[in-house]
Amino acid sequence: MCKNSIKRKSKQVLNAYLCAQEFIYLFIMRKYIQDFRVTDCTRLHANYVLLKLAQDTPLPKILPGQFAEIRVENSPATLLRRPISINYVDRERNELWFLIQLVGEGTRHLGDAKKGDIINVVYPLGNGFTLPSDNSKNVILIGGGVGTAPMLYLGEQLKLKGITPTFLLGARSAKDLLQLEDFARYGKVYTTTEDGSHGEKGYVTQHSILSTQSFDMIYTCGPKPMMMAVAKYAKAKNIECEVSLENHMACGVGACLCCVENLKDEGNVCVCKEGPVFNIKRLLWQI
């Protein structure tokens, strides 16, 4: 019993330490502008590339859910940087991973990057997902399409905290489900596809796991209708839920006031600075 209480106590101390550390990191968190070397740019399928960018020096602290503004060179039609979620941070190789959906001229340019190219990156930007303070929490990470990108790094960070997350990943069809083996390293992976070619047929919110298991925390990123459906589920079940928004942005640092989301408590705030992650309680979504 004594042993248990010491164990419990040391766990509490450790948790308090982790919380304090997070607070300090948030406080001293700073942004960088750096040139990165392309180490890999692999087409995962017709519409997605996995871009890996490396530095010679160790990368700074990066929170899961943060993003980068990536410069697109020699493309006058796309003057602005492209805001892209940080998919994964490989500390051994000093590498940032970006899962990029090729939607327009800017992302297509990035998708054409060759090994050895230099790409300028402003990072890490925005806030991150709130990691649970106690590791007995049952958490689920729900991602749709390219919205699965930040879930990989979040999954790893949760695992490092001693929380084994559940992943629920949705896509149109099997070929659109990306990095499944990477996700499987950190937790159990469930999938849905609209055509039924992988996992359960339908949308993520229709997956049986949401009715057979209970969760204390939901993290979600993906197309807005999907996130709204997830938020609606979370609200109905009274589960804490954080969503990562993708509003169009220019500066990425809270200066231009273009990417605003209207919040219940504060009115219009910059998604790039106050977000991209928000608790659904703050949003004015009709859910």
């Binding site: 006058p76 039609a77 796309t78 003057l79 602005l80 509003n247 169009h248 942005m249 220019a250 231009c256 006031l257 273009c258 990417c259 605003v260 989301e261 209207n262 009115g267 219009n268």
Partner: peptide, 23 residues
């Protein structure tokens, strides 16, 4: 001032349009 509703920005060739509205 709350400024204008989202969307407030559009990228155009060699430029951008904004409609922040003095938030």
């Amino acid at each position: 001032r709350e400024g204008n509703p989202y969307p407030r920005m559009a990228e155009t060739p060699s430029g951008m349009l904004n409609a922040v509205g003095l938030q």
